[in-house]
Structures are given as C-alpha cells and as structure tokens.
C-alpha cells in the first residue's frame, strides 16, 4: 500500500481549521503542526491514484497554500 509523508503550508492563522478539515479525510493522519503553522501528515491509500486524490483534495481546502511531498513509498505495488 503506498504511503507518503507530506507538509502543508497554510495561509496565516488557518492551520487549525485545515487540521480540522483533514480529520475527515480517510487515510490521512496529522502527525503535528509546527510553530509556523506548517502541518505534517502521513497519507496512506490503496493506490497511488487514491493517494494523489487525497493530496488533490488537500489542495482544495480553504487556506492551504501548498502541499509538498517529503517521502513516497510504493514498494508493494505492481508496476
């Protein structure tokens, strides 16, 4: 199952509401919010397609400026 670690940058003051929204995303775990408001999350899904779908939805959350990818493992997928 592909797993990735991502960092979300938010507009000032909106990190908390973004974290709230992320709680409703199946397959996304928030691992922490940094003092500057950046959010670290782990994404887990059945396929890379589903993973990217989650990231695309993250982009659409009000206040999310960027979603960046730190680590992506998809070792057990048929390629």
């Amino acid at each position: 199952m592909p797993i990735s670690g991502v960092v979300l940058t938010c507009a000032p003051g909106l990190s908390d509401s973004v974290v709230g929204e992320l709680a409703s995303f199946d397959g996304v775990e928030v691992h922490g919010v940094l003092p500057d408001g950046q959010i670290v999350a782990v994404v887990e899904a059945d396929s890379v397609d589903a993973e990217v779908s989650l990231v695309t939805r993250m982009h659409e959350i009000a206040g999310v400026a960027t979603v960046r990818l730190a680590y992506h493992n998809f070792e057990d997928l048929e390629q």
Binding site: S4, G5, Q38, V40, A70, Y71, H72
Partner: peptide, 12 residues
C-alpha cells in the same frame, strides 16, 4: 519514515 522525512524537511 514518511513522517520523519516530512518533519526533517521543515526543521521539526
């Protein structure tokens, strides 16, 4: 590992 890489990248 995924979380650690993300934290490391943003200095957390």
């Amino acid at each position: 590992s995924a979380a650690a890489a993300a934290f490391a990248a943003v200095g957390g």
